[in-house]
Nucleic acid binder design. Structure first.
Lengths: 153, 153
DNA sequence: GGCTATGCATGTATAGTTGCAAGTGTTGTC
DNA sequence: GACAACACTTGCAACTATACATGCATAGCC
């Protein structure tokens, strides 16, 4: 046995390091919104304006629950309700500039931190990391964004 | 530009894939305990029996909050209180077999899933993934377990 | 027009987390 | 032995999330 660190061990180590990155990037936003609220903003930022019911379904929330959660999100100024042009009974939710900025800030912090880590490696090391990670992503295959909701991410 | 996938992009992809793995592994435990409760069990499994106050500090919880959370964890049969042999005013918390099993189950599921992913690669690919991940871990440096508490992991 | 379905909000209820403040018992010190 | 410090629990209060049932307005269909 050449090395005591198996590929699975290394993966677990990396998963912890990456989780740390994610946690740090999100924590600043948690001063303003709760994790369930933040994930609503993330879904919104990925989908654009979307109907209340559809959005509730996306985050696996009961409509009544979600309606009140949205009350708080709107009250905080992160999103707005507007009546759908197509149907007067539909309510569209859109991110405000503040809401979009909150999500963007988290994303940018995450990317910046990853870049910082990678810059500690030599270019050739970076290349081998890049290739290996791409390999791993392909092997991991389709991941469901829905799953991440468990963690509120 | 040889490749459109930069190292940072690849890292983000992997972080999502790994977060999916973590989310899936934890979700089964969430049928029984809440995320804040589960993270107490994780800390306990890493530390062994520990005093109430110290444990509260480890999870960044107010003592009063924590005392009541522990009521629920104990009521659920995941941990037990016992008076410290050294001092009658100290209460030691220990995992029950059920509590340990709950944590172990999550860990095992996570490892199994990672192994499954890696098995899709050839041995030489696995080796390059292993080396690259190790490299990344080193570059990421010290991560604080505390940070992960934000995500409840 | 009348009926049903749809979309959202509200009424009501439960459970969990959180924090400040006060209370109880224990330990150590003077 | 009195008093302060410590460790934990409890009282009280607020907030969030969650869900079932209900109400109200709109839309679509016959």
């Amino acid at each position: 046995m050449r090395n005591t660190v198996t590929a699975a061990d290394a993966t677990l180590l990396v998963s912890r390091a990456l989780l740390g990155v994610v946690a740090r990037s999100v924590s600043s936003a948690l001063e303003f919104v709760t994790l369930p609220q933040f994930r609503v903003l993330v879904v919104l930022s990925g989908s654009g304006p979307i109907r209340m019911g559809a959005l509730a379904e996306r985050v696996h929330a009961n409509q009544s629950t979600f309606s009140r959660s949205m009350d708080k999100i709107v009250a905080g100024g992160w999103a707005v309700r507007s009546t759908s042009p197509g149907s007067r009974r539909e309510i569209l939710i859109s991110l405000t500039d503040a809401g979009r900025a909150l999500v963007d800030e988290v994303t940018e912090r995450r990317q910046a931190e990853i870049s910082t880590i990678l810059k500690r490696l030599t270019p050739s090391e970076q290349e081998s990391v890049r290739a290996a990670l791409e390999l791993f992503s392909i092997a991991a295959g389709e991941y469901s964004v829905e799953e991440l909701l468990v963690l509120g991410i």
